[in-house]
Design a protein around this nucleic acid. Structure first.
Lengths: 248, 248
DNA sequence: CGTACCGTTGACGGTGTTCAACGTAGGTGG
DNA sequence: CCACCTACGTTGAACACCGTCAACGGTACG
């Protein structure tokens, strides 16, 4: 077997973090064939409405999922980091309603749906694991609906920083209190659901209150506890703890 | 075989609408054992953080999924109608981060996770169909993130009415322009992400602009096209069209 | 007949938007 | 090497949407 692309190992680690897999199942994941691509910042990956027969795995950089309006406004509905499969959804549902864009310079792996389906068919535990992985995505979305609906800009931003801190720490790309979030303030605003102007002011508030310091794109959280309190952040929705039930 | 509860048939119809199933697979769904429950309005079904070993199927009425804040504010992150399985998620991930509440008087069916897992194990196509069903849920959430983040109250409400109209029509509980949405304005406000006071004013705007009429809890859409235009509503995200790929 | 829930209204204040402008850093071509 | 350009962060002022608080009327129900 050709040695797997490191991106596949990252993906496997992500899966295994939440689902117990046997050796054969792990090998099946590592032997998925993949087509690496380098992308410039703001490069489009999937346009809204596109039909695709490949899934997208992030190996390096940040990828955003977005929904756009007629007037050109865009809302980012997910931010993917290395090891994340952006559109595992597209395997059972190949017609995307959303778009994918490289938020920073990126390396991605394109993996044929057919391969993933075959793996899911050969190993029910994998099918189950992919299902569970999809639920993590939904769980994060659900939390974001709640944040957008009921919180003001400051706690919303705080919550996003907490979330990204935890996720980067989990994949060893920094610690929860010190990580690089390689996206512009305009892109951040598209996540938080405010204008770029207001995001800038909100970020300044967090800085002036001594919760974080940020220069360039590096975020240092000076007071993690206070940030979590402001955000009412409770990481259980990220489903980082491995859950029990496995297919027999 | 004992004759199945009608709720199970509704669920099967929902699944079959999006995934092609063979006879044996259909029977497996219909023979899931279920425990019916009658619920009063506002009765809690799952409290946030609860662990459960049963999934919840709506047979009659409306069920809401919510996330709540320390100050008591609540955001509804999903509204389920008859035929929907509220927490198919809970099968692979039994620890819920959210709560479920009866938005109206309800009949629900409790179905043991073990049964669903067994069905998924026996029939990979079912596992795949459940996965796909979970994605529908996520797709709706994704659209809601976009609505909450980028739209004002009026188009947001319009979008929700369009969505519910389509969904009720799909399950034959009315037409997209004439249906009963059995929830209070306060509950609606918890969906739209505004206060009850503002929701009331927004509803009046829709009425005074001749887009809808509503008395009691019955919604009549006077101008479907205009409502869709205001909402920028495009129903593809509901995944009502059956998608092709099936496990071989 | 009281109570509880629900829809409705008015006045006021705050959060976030809009529009316009400016500063800086990095990159490119003359 | 400097002029120019573009992307990005930053600031100010006016305004709009929406939240808050408080109150009132109708209806169902015990």
């Amino acid at each position: 077997m050709m040695s797997a692309h490191p991106g596949l190992s990252q993906f496997l680690e992500r899966i295994v973090r939440r689902s117990e897999l046997k050796q054969a199942e792990k090998s099946a994941v590592l032997s998925l064939s993949s087509r690496p691509l380098q992308l410039r910042q703001n490069a489009g990956i999937i346009r809204p409405g596109d039909k695709t027969d490949e899934a997208t795995l992030v190996a390096k950089g940040l990828v955003g999922r977005f929904d756009s309006r007629r007037n050109g406004d865009r809302q980012l509905t997910a931010v993917y980091i290395p090891g994340d499969m952006c559109d595992l959804h597209s395997v059972p549902v190949p017609q995307a309603g959303w778009g994918l864009v490289a938020l920073s310079p990126c390396t991605i792996l394109k993996i044929p749906h057919a391969e993933i389906r075959k793996a899911a068919l050969d190993f029910p535990a994998l099918s189950y694991a992919f299902w569970r992985d999809t639920i993590v995505d939904g769980s994060i979305l659900s939390k974001w609906v709640s944040n957008l609906g009921r919180r003001e800009a400051k706690p919303r931003l705080a919550h996003f920083l907490c979330e990204m801190g935890m996720r980067f720490e989990t994949v060893d790309l920094g610690s929860r209190t010190d990580f690089t979030l390689d996206m512009s303030q305009a892109q951040l605003a598209e996540v938080i659901g405010v204008t770029a102007v207001h995001l800038n002011r909100t970020l300044q508030e967090l800085r002036s209150e001594g919760l974080i310091t940020s220069q360039q794109r590096r975020i240092e959280v000076s007071d993690w506890e206070a940030l979590c309190r402001l955000a009412e952040f409770d990481p259980t929705y990220l489903l980082l703890a491995r859950q029990v039930p496995r297919l027999p």
